[in-house]
Simulated scan of single mutants.
Amino acid sequence: MDDLSVVIEDPRWDALALETLAETALRATLTHLALDPDRCEVTLLACDDARIAVLNGDFRAKPTPTNVLSWPAEERAADAPGDNPQALKPGLDGLYELGDIAISFDTCEREAQAAGKPVTDHVTHLVVHGVLHLLGYDHETDADAALMEGLEVKILGKMGLNDPYRN
């Protein structure tokens, strides 16, 4: 499958079988939204806190570690808060280039431990979250957050994972 390219900069990701986990999360997200995963392209950078802090500083002016960052290939934001994002537009080759995601091992592991959940479950959630950002979903307003988080809960539920927003 060539819909997901994974670049692993931190070898600790290998123990989580990240490529398989991310492929499963990507496919579940796209399928839930009635998109053909074989026609969508995403690149995932699996890094550590030091690298993601640089990226966060460069792109968001927040030079601190974070769990996940997303760079959509094109702006797809909804016209109004709580609305669905704009539809995807295929490239000349008929494929949909969604964009890039970076995820930090250190922050993911720390957050999973603090929440008392398996790291793989948390990483799966963050990949789903990152893919939704690539598709134009966000959580800037309460209405947008409700839409995005509702999708995450449904997608993760179909994957057999618990609601990440419930304590």
Rank of each mutant, 00 (worst) to 15 (best):
A46Q: 12
R39I: 11
A22G: 09
F59V: 15
D49W: 01
E9W: 09
G160L: 06
P65I: 03
G157T: 00
N167C: 15
G99H: 00
P118K: 12
M159N: 05
R110V: 04
R39L: 11
V153Q: 07
G57M: 03
D100H: 10
I103Y: 03
L35V: 09
D38H: 14
T20C: 12
D121E: 15
I52G: 08
E23G: 12
L4H: 01
N162T: 12
L4P: 10
E9V: 01
S5I: 13
R110P: 04
A77F: 00
H139L: 05
H139Y: 11
A25Y: 09
A25W: 04
K89I: 10
F105D: 08
T141C: 04
A22C: 06
D93M: 02
I8V: 02
D144Y: 03
V127E: 08
P63K: 13
A22D: 07
A112S: 08
G130K: 03
L69N: 05
R27F: 07
T141L: 07
H125Y: 13
P72H: 00
V153F: 06
G99K: 00
L98N: 03
T124I: 10
A28L: 01
I103S: 01
E140I: 11
P11F: 10
L135M: 09
L35I: 09
F105C: 02
L30N: 01
D93N: 05
L126C: 11
L45I: 08
A145I: 02
A73V: 00
P63D: 10
R27M: 09
V42C: 02
D58H: 13
L135E: 03
P11M: 12
D142N: 09
E41R: 14
N56F: 13
T43P: 10
W13D: 02
D83W: 09
A115R: 14
A73S: 08
E9K: 05
L147C: 00
L126K: 06
P65F: 03
D144Q: 05
L161H: 11
A143M: 06
D3W: 03
R166D: 12
L134A: 05
D49P: 05
A15Q: 04
T43H: 14
E149D: 06
H139G: 10
E152P: 06
L151S: 01
D121T: 15
M148Y: 01
I101D: 02
W71L: 12
L95F: 05
W71D: 08
R51K: 10
D163W: 01
E74K: 11
D38R: 04
P11T: 15
D144W: 10
P72D: 04
E74H: 10
R12N: 14
A28K: 03
M159I: 04
L161W: 07
K62L: 15
D83A: 10
D58P: 11
V131Y: 01
E140M: 13
P81K: 07
D79M: 05
C47L: 08
D38N: 11
P65E: 04
T20G: 15
